[in-house]
Nucleic acid binder design. Structure first.
Lengths: 239, 239
DNA sequence: CATGAGCACCTAACACTGTTAGGGGTTGAT
DNA sequence: ATCAACCCCTAACAGTGTTAGGTGCTCATG
């Protein structure tokens, strides 16, 4: 207990110089293993024992490299973010910010349960730093003030995370019956239409618009609105 | 037979009415009990056994009223949303939508871990229907088209959920040591400032703006940007 | 009145989970 | 040869969601 002086337990910041010859088990390897388990079993099925087995080790051994499961999830978070790449530096600022949003969403889609992993986790790893730096650079170049550029990064990331979390949530009622995603959507639409008209006139009438099945359309609308809102911060000639 | 004098977990708070005939345990009562446990122990500490104990029953009995823990969480979700109220119907459309955003955020703040509970959960309960109906009504009245009104509801809810999820995420490093929230913020700021300047010039220079400690300021900026973006959908005389 | 149906609870158990304590080897340096 | 650091192990604890099967209790029906 309280051994945090001599040895270097789970606390990061020290990639030791491998005193032994065996490559063994690094935090990076742990993150990759966790990523594979996540892809196979989802976040709910990701346990310390499975990650340990993935690297050929027993569960308790993980606690030498990592303080917590929480810390393992931080590693996993950074491993997911590692595959993110900034959009090409071409077009106006709108095109570039748009690229950021769509790529961020794509990233969360490509890794199973990535949105849930990232959800309550700030934990800025090195990869996130790089992306943030690049994004800030483009925002300032576009003419945004320091404060506006900084705040904009929060606006974009908050929205994308929230959106993906919502779009990936199961449709509760219709998910179990092996119904396809599109069937589920029409089921929800019918539920809207079946509501009492006098109490919910708008829900009944707009049932079609509310259940737009193409989520890309929804996403595009939201992103363009945000970009429009950001544009008003710029002097007219730079919009 | 020793009906329930056992009360093993030492917490025989209220064995309310053992007399038969009274239902005593409805889904609504379950939801309220879950809400109390959530407030006391947080989402991580919310177990079937605790909720059962809260209503004076053993864990297995819950499965008579509820299929899953997942379904219990759906109930909990609706119970949280039940306390939501639409903003007053005064001012222009901007003021009203602004009211929606701030109230939604407030709601997620007021109930412990509410953001995490609501996160991946669409599950439109009756209360959400009412709010949605009302919001759509105001949007159409403001002059938004059917499709735009419908899509706007997704934009607003996605953003608010994502934002609250982010702002409530622990600051990873500094949360444990009993450091106050403000200390944690300055710690993050110092970490930004300590980065190599040649690799991260923007992060270093904007460290102050990135770590704006007043989260209301951040939220306000984001909301106003979104409202600006929505305004561009309206003909100029209605903005 | 007896009987069966159905409800609403129970006990016990299963297969897991995260996490800790303490015990071993292997390694390189003294 | 000794020592300490390192890295992994076994065993166990307390708790998790969930299921199987049993027990009364109430009520409608024969």
């Amino acid at each position: 207990m309280a051994e945090n002086d001599a040895t270097t337990p789970g606390n990061g910041a020290t990639p030791p110089e491998k005193s032994t010859g065996t490559p063994a088990l690094t935090r990076e390897a742990l993150a990759q293993a966790a990523l594979r388990v996540l892809e196979r079993d989802g976040l709910a099925g990701l346990s310390m024992r499975k990650v340990a087995a993935e690297v050929g080790v027993k569960a308790a051994s993980l606690y030498w490299h990592v303080r917590n499961k929480e810390e393992l999830l931080d590693l996993l978070n950074d491993a997911i973010m590692a595959s993110a790449e900034p959009p090409p530096r071409e077009g106006d600022w709108r095109a570039q910010l748009r690229g950021y949003c769509w790529r961020h969403r794509r990233l969360l889609h490509d890794n199973r349960d990535a949105a849930k992993v990232v959800a309550g986790r700030l934990a800025p790893g090195p990869h996130v730093f790089g992306l943030l730096e690049d994004q800030l650079d483009r925002l300032r170049e576009a003419g945004f003030s320091d404060a506006h550029a900084a705040l904009t990064t929060y606006l974009l990331s908050s929205f994308v995370q929230g959106f993906v979390l919502q779009e990936q949530s199961p449709i509760s009622a219709a998910e179990a019956g092996g119904a396809s995603r599109l069937d589920a959507v029409t089921a929800v639409r019918d539920r809207f239409r079946a509501l009492p008209v006098e109490a919910f006139p708008n829900l009944v009438e707009l049932a079609g618009d509310l259940t737009e099945p193409d989520l890309d359309v929804r996403f595009e609308f939201c992103v363009e609105r945000i970009l429009d809102g950001l544009a008003t911060l710029l002097p007219p000639e730079r919009r």
